[in-house]
Amino acid sequence: MRVTVQFFARLRELAGCSSWTCEIADGATVADVWQAAEQQFPAIAAMAGRVSCAVNADFGRMNAVVHDGDEVAFLPPVSGGSATERD
C-alpha cells in the first residue's frame, strides 16, 4: 500500500522535502512508516524519539495501524517555550 508522508519545519529541512510517497506492507504502523522514512532520509534519525505524528490531519499515535491512502505527518517538537523563557 501507499501512504503520503509529510515533514514539517526542521524535519522538512533534514529530509530535504516536505512530502514523500511511501510504499509499505499492509498492517504497517506509523512507527514502521517512520522507520521507512529514516531509511530513505537518514538525516531525520537525528530527531527520532522527539517527534509526534498525525494521521489524516488528526493527532495519532506511533503504534496506530495505517491504511492505503493515509496521510501521515511527522511533527518536530513545537515552539512551546521552555521553563526558562516563555513568550
Binding site: A9, R50, F59, P77, S79
Partner: peptide, 11 residues
C-alpha cells in the same frame, strides 16, 4: 534556528 519545545501531544 528553529525554536523547539515540547513534543505536541494533546493526551
Amino acid at each position: 534556528a528553529w525554536v523547539e519545545g515540547p513534543v505536541a501531544d494533546p493526551a
